[in-house]
């Protein structure tokens, strides 16, 4: 479903991604862990070309998104994204945040879009917030709305870029619960995260990234209980025993 081939990304002289290749099948839930600055977020952002790879290819449903003739906007409709800082639109209500893209891009009528939005709001447990502006929401609520907004486009895959890193500890669970539900429904997900419990219990596959490469790619049980690489061992020791 998603295939990355020999991705490189440089920021000036800084090499952030060095030859990353990855194949993601439908229904996989992939947690990407690793130290700060290892290129996790950059890699995720290359998958919908929010970040322009320096070289390499990304195929989504077989289409090369690096092809200059491709309509990247059509591809992005299939790839939902959730950000660390939510990035809700402050000038729009919760309902408008969710219905904007489906109305403008999918040709839905207002009733259809709103019906879909209310179903999603119910799913993330925030039906009563439809008329509220984002500034009135807590961090956890904002992130749940951001997930609903991405889901409103009915994407085939969801990218999560550290979705709980900016949240108060108490609010992390409410967001993870929504993500767990999504995983149970069979959504294909790539999640950059520092939540090791989530990576261990929910993911079907865990990638450990370090200095721009994927050092380890394994089932969660294997990676957490029997890491092969010394750097992985060191990282896990530090984050699990803090």
């Amino acid at each position: 479903m998603i295939e990355a081939k020999h991705l490189y990304k440089n920021f000036g002289s800084l090499k952030v991604l060095k030859d990353i290749s990855l194949n993601v099948e439908k229904g996989e839930i992939i947690a990407i862990i690793g130290p700060s600055g290892s290129g996790k977020s950059t890699f995720l952002r290359c998958l919908n070309r929010l970040e322009e790879p320096t070289s390499g290819h990304v195929y989504i449903d077989g289409e090369d998104i690096m092809d200059s003739k491709i309509d990247i906007n059509k591809i992005r409709e299939k790839v939902g994204m959730v950000f660390q800082h939510f990035n809700l639109f402050p000038n729009k209500t919760v309902l408008e945040n969710i219905t904007l893209a489906p109305l403008k891009l999918k040709g839905l009528t207002k009733e259809q879009a709103e019906k879909r939005a209310f179903a999603l709001l119910k799913r993330v447990g925030l039906e009563d917030k439809s008329q509220v502006y984002p500034s009135k929401l807590s961090g956890g609520q904002k992130q749940r709305i951001a997930i609903a907004r991405a889901l409103a486009m009915e994407p085939e895959v969801m990218l999560f870029d550290e979705p709980t890193s900016a949240l108060d500890p108490e609010m992390i669970k409410e967001v993870l619960d929504v993500m767990i539900d999504l995983a149970k429904e069979g959504m294909t997900m790539l999640i950059v995260t520092h939540e090791m419990g989530f990576a261990k219990n929910v993911a079907t596959r865990v990638l450990f990234m370090n200095e721009g490469t994927i050092l380890e790619d394994a089932r969660p049980k294997d990676l957490f209980e029997n890491p092969q690489n010394a750097r992985t061992k060191d990282f896990l020791y530090k984050v699990l025993n803090k």
């Binding site: 950000f83 639109f89 904007l100 891009l105 486009m153």
Partner: peptide, 20 residues
Amino acid sequence: GQMEAARALGMPYSLSMKEI
């Protein structure tokens, strides 16, 4: 992040500018 969020939803540059 505002522009990124709009673009990530599949909205073209001009529409993102106008709406967001």
